[in-house]
Nucleic acid binder design. Sequence first.
DNA 1: TAGTGGTCTAGACCACCAT
DNA 2: TGGTGGTCTAGACCACTAG
Lengths: 255, 255
Amino acid sequence: MKGAEHAGITPQLIADPEGSPGFRPLYKQVRDLLTRRLADGFWAPGAMLPSEQELAATLSVSQGTVRKALDAMAAENLIVRRQGRGTFVAQQDDERVLFHFFRMTGDDGSHVFPESEVESVRPGTAGTAEAEALGLDPDTPVLRILRTRSLGGRPVIAECLTLPARLFPGLEDRRDLPNNLYGLFADQYGISIARASERLKAVGADRDAARRLELSEGAPLLAIERTAFSVMGDPVEWRLSLCATEGFHYVSEMR
Amino acid sequence: MKGAEHAGITPQLIADPEGSPGFRPLYKQVRDLLTRRLADGFWAPGAMLPSEQELAATLSVSQGTVRKALDAMAAENLIVRRQGRGTFVAQQDDERVLFHFFRMTGDDGSHVFPESEVESVRPGTAGTAEAEALGLDPDTPVLRILRTRSLGGRPVIAECLTLPARLFPGLEDRRDLPNNLYGLFADQYGISIARASERLKAVGADRDAARRLELSEGAPLLAIERTAFSVMGDPVEWRLSLCATEGFHYVSEMR
DNA sequence: TAGTGGTCTAGACCACCAT
DNA sequence: TGGTGGTCTAGACCACTAG
């Protein structure tokens, strides 16, 4: 069959301009369309998507094209495909979040589970660094969460998170913020974290960090600055984590 | 066409056992076969592979199956595909190595190019940590390379590399080891680095590191322990890098 | 213009899962 | 047993590159 046969059949799909410059593969259009639906909460986290056949029929596209779009989305961890069962919206459950976004591991290779103690949740306005990282205007309202995380019962991570207040209304009034914040973001605010970028440095502990982590001032700490992005690619969270790395390390895979 | 039609046509491909347990997709067999050829130096780095059509005919497999195998290998950075030109063996040129395996960046986002000064190349025998990381028996002959790397003219990284001596004969007699060692490994020893795993910690500078990096003893340093793997997945290099992170940081992307 | 990888389709069959 | 994703094939056309 010819590649352009489907032109204009489905309104959501751009009828191939077919002029060399504006060419956009069909499967990418399908991927973007489905990603947009996902971001808009059209399907709830954990929900099953329509089958490939069904999507193909709805979108007037071949099953192979839908498959390629779904494969791309699975590679971006937006959906999960299970042979024999179906395709599901990725959930921010503990295992997934820990696996994808928590890179601290015991020196013996053991996977460790962090416990969190929230010290405060306070409204404020974005400083220059926060504004730049989150793509906000300076002085935009933000929320700041201070918490200390423990590994194996020892306080090991002191961190401060900054969130755009607009995206998380009422969050400062909540009690008992969960250990897995990304699950809360997804389930209560419809915001799924899809990707994050971290910058690491070695620094000496300041007075506050030394107190919270029960170390002496100047002790070497791993400083991790993270910006987290939503499914649509917008920055949604910025955090600074100060980690004691005695008995633990940060893992980075490169391929 | 039926999936099993090709059974036994090509001796290199296992005639599908087709019993549920030992099932192995054709395209994975093709991928493994081509990966093996790559590791054996059947094609030189930078060389062009046969076209999809040609490979398909040779292996008695459809073009789509070859394509899927090649796509998988491209995702593993073993080959590079260029529309209109062909498929090429990945090269360990400076840009690629820097892009894939050097994660230090200037705080202003500028990509920095490290200069290396080799202090010594010495034969020895593997200690327990080295033996474990490299999958060697203790006391196996190894080579150790000590070097200091500079960013923007400032000595910033003090590192020690350990290599199995068996894989790199005569390396200790070379003069002027290049900055890009992986290029040397590939071009002179037929060993391409395909993947690496790093463990990061914050530590205080010891006397030696302090001297080499012109810092005071106890200054916080980023300690990076890397194990690098060949195309076939065997550990080939182990290194410990101590990095001063004033003005620089380590980047980690998570998706 | 010829050759390469990239996209799209159509249809068959297989492996896996729930029922 | 029926439905889902996964594999494999076959063939057409498109976009890109080089000579």
